[in-house]
Write a protein that binds this DNA or RNA. Sequence first.
DNA 1: CCTTCCGATTGATAAATGTCAAGGCCACGT
DNA 2: ACGTGGCCTTGACATTTATCAATCGGAAGG
Lengths: 232, 232
Amino acid sequence: MPDSAFGEIRDLPLFAAMTDVNFAALVRGAYVQTFPAQIELIAEGDPSDFLHIVLSGSVDLFASWNGREASLSTVRPISTFILAATVRDAPYLMSARTLEKSRIALIPSQDVRAVFDSDAGFARAVVTELAQCYRSVVKAQKDLKLRTSLERLANYLLRQQRRAGGAATFELEHEKRRLASVLGMTPENLSRAFKGLQPHGLAVEGARVTITDQAEFRRFARPSPLIDDATT
Amino acid sequence: MPDSAFGEIRDLPLFAAMTDVNFAALVRGAYVQTFPAQIELIAEGDPSDFLHIVLSGSVDLFASWNGREASLSTVRPISTFILAATVRDAPYLMSARTLEKSRIALIPSQDVRAVFDSDAGFARAVVTELAQCYRSVVKAQKDLKLRTSLERLANYLLRQQRRAGGAATFELEHEKRRLASVLGMTPENLSRAFKGLQPHGLAVEGARVTITDQAEFRRFARPSPLIDDATT
DNA sequence: CCTTCCGATTGATAAATGTCAAGGCCACGT
DNA sequence: ACGTGGCCTTGACATTTATCAATCGGAAGG
């Protein structure tokens, strides 16, 4: 197991505070693998054998019930997913699939739990990460319960704009039908929602989006730091 | 600060593993207070000064945006809330109000963070609690995104039935308009949803609910352990 | 160049949900 | 006993969202 492969995760906030010995114990049974796009990495209900870390590419977390399916979030480098299941040694609540070709590090869950018990620095980092994840879901919950689909789309676009650098014109990074699932609506409805935002200062052609009237668009979207800020 | 007041929280999983010294440090600046019903304990956006623990009664966690309001969850004894905000020293994402007369313990957030840094046992317990909270929100998210309002109500009733002991007849524990908010619908719609479940084996009179045909009702609700089990 | 395929879009329609207004029921206090 | 107020329910209606079917358009491959 070449150390080099894990150099990039050694500096993650999650692992930065732990001792070299414990980090070595953590990666001893770990491995890094490259997956093509659209591979299902885990299925909800499976036991949580590995903590996953996205090194490059991106991963879609989704869930199914009664024949329906919904995207819950997207994991981007460099961060972990299903940490909570690993910690609790409980089954996954979500399935995961690669959205594009992705490099994923897999660390055996039992090693995570073992090191977690012996390394206070690591335990602290896990708490911070978990609290972050928790707050993200709460924000998603508020987004879903308090906003109409038009408002959700508008605020999503503002977040995406910021992530893309803040310019008036930027690209959607997901295919639209997945975006629809993330936003909790059907693809058809998303199409109509894009049209519905035109009077509020939006222009769309394909995956290229332009906020033509930033002030009016924000007035409509009413973004809130308690829902839309990724950092807080 | 009488120790007796904190005896009941000493045995909580969250505090069980920590040393007496650290527990004492934690409760030194803490206090227990009894609040009447319908008191707003915290407001979203406030800095997280205290970790709250519900000792008796119950607390509603809710959020507002643009004049709308939605209940996100209910906290019952004995458990904490806004642990994540405390840990990250970040503003509350939700507001909290008492649903009934309640006894609440308040522990200064900075003490929690300090002890957390020095007591590995406590840190571990915090992780477990946080992971639990996280998984609860994910389940709520799945409930909301994958189910119609009728299905959400049906599964809520099954969960409530179990909590009430499993008998065919049981009582709703919330007033219906709050239940509506929890389930993500309007009170009017909840009324109609109750009627819509009658053909599937439900009878309602006031707050008294009877599942008249358990098999048919479950067939309609299709409960899933990955959404409806509180424990996993 | 043409075909094929897949996602996006559009229109028509149905279903679900929200809104508004009115009325019923029940507990409470006078 | 009688108002009174709060909550729940009901009905009519508007809005939102989903569904179904058809079409458009670009990308990949022959």
